[in-house]
Nucleic acid binder design. Sequence first.
RNA 1: GGGCCGUUAGCUCAGCAGGUAGAGCACCGGCCUUUUAAGCCGGGAGUCGCAGGUUCGAAUCCUGCACGGCUCACCA
Length: 482
Amino acid sequence: MEKELDQVRIRKEKVQRLREMGIDPFPYIFFRTHFSEEVKENFDSLEEKEVVVAGRLVSRRLHGKAGFVHIEDDRGRIQIYFKYDTLQDRYALVKLLDLGDFIGVKGKVFRTKTGEVTVWAENVELLSKALHPPPEKYHGLKDIELRYRNRHLDLMANPEVRDRFRMRTRIIQGIREFFVKEGFLEVETPVLQPRYGGAFARPFITHYNALDRDYFLRIANEIYLKRLIIGGFEKVFEMGKMFRNEGLDRFHNPEFTNLEAYQAYADYNVMMELVENLFLYLSKDVLKKDSFTFQGMEIVIKEKWERITYFGALEKYTGIDFYPLDKEETKRKAEELGVDTEGKVTKGKILDAIFDKCVQPDLVQPVFVIDYPVDITPLAKKKRGDDNLVERFEPFMAMTEIGNAYSELNNPEEQKERFLFQQSLREKGDMEATPIDEDFIQAMMYGMPPTGGLGLGVDRVVMLLLDVPSIRDAILFPQLRE
RNA sequence: GGGCCGUUAGCUCAGCAGGUAGAGCACCGGCCUUUUAAGCCGGGAGUCGCAGGUUCGAAUCCUGCACGGCUCACCA
């Protein structure tokens, strides 16, 4: 720590004085009868009745032998009136209170002459002394770096931030409720994995000392969840953290929350309906409205989303049918479109770059982009009637990709070939290519039912529904450089 | 990783023709027994992100670094 702040020194001296007065500045427990909100909402029945409230001191207007303060609890703020005539000796404690302290107050509910519902303190107890002054009361805490690094201060100073994270939790609970209601079993799979797969991304590597072997933080849980389907569970889901060793930006945090759900006897069409129903559920039960705005774009949650094929979308927005083109021709066209193809190993990767630049900015209303090229999707089943495509879709809205889903590949021999192809990409220098997973192939040998799978970026869903432009404002403790 | 911008009191910010640091809130003292960003009077508080350089003199100009933001690239 650097030099002690004057105000901190003064507060520590107050702690000393309180102890000399026989007051414990850090007592253990307090019983309250009402939240601030309850007192205010039930004023008519509580007027002149005694209540006990508790909270953090957030404003203070003392004038000599009387004064007003506001305390803040989990549900809001309420004003407290302190008067020397009522408190007598106890008024000495009031004079030693600082902004940020936690106090408990017993008193009768009344209305001041300006009409504010207030508790007239008959007793006041210090519940915890704050040694450091809080952020500024009027402007709040603006400094973005401070807000992310010291989220407790951000939450303290900016009530709208608390509201936002309460809403995040409700959305997450809503997602969980929806899948449980649909009959999915919530499971937990390893975060620490001896090999990684299920997505294209570089992993975080860690070392397991007892085994003297490198392990990986999961980039996805897909393989484990499918092994559960092989084991006989018909509907499973997991919501949890994934870790991808990549850059930070408005839409990416290396540690993020993901939902994956797998359903036996289903294909990607069933999973599209599941996504439609999930959003209907969220809009009805959480948002309580059937549209929302993200960065000025009004998004309407409909029962049925538009579906457009991957190549169809590319053709619609570039005028070029990429389907018949080989890698070289695709590359040429990409460059004509001004798309950077540097380091793109396959036609699929080049197409992805074109898609991101030319198509994605037009995907505003909820839409499923379906039927992707096979080479960028090693775990999905081939499209019925077209070996160059797989049955895969990505849900988009507000120009943002929010998930990924397939008719899951369940033929172990084909799975092996796909892994071998990925292996060859790896050898060509594509570090995101999926490594081969023999255990998974072996598991699939025992028989895996036809299965639909879905992955959903939960943080991105939160961003969209709450109109939060940066993932750092959708995650309580976003990753920052140390 | 590239480009642009930012970093001054606990917080929000001003100060930048280069002359040695300011305001509001917060804090301390005084007055004040119904206030609402309470008020009035007085006071304390800063290694101006860090390190170099130019200069008689740097918060201010230059260079490098750190951290952050936006953006491009990378990345589902």
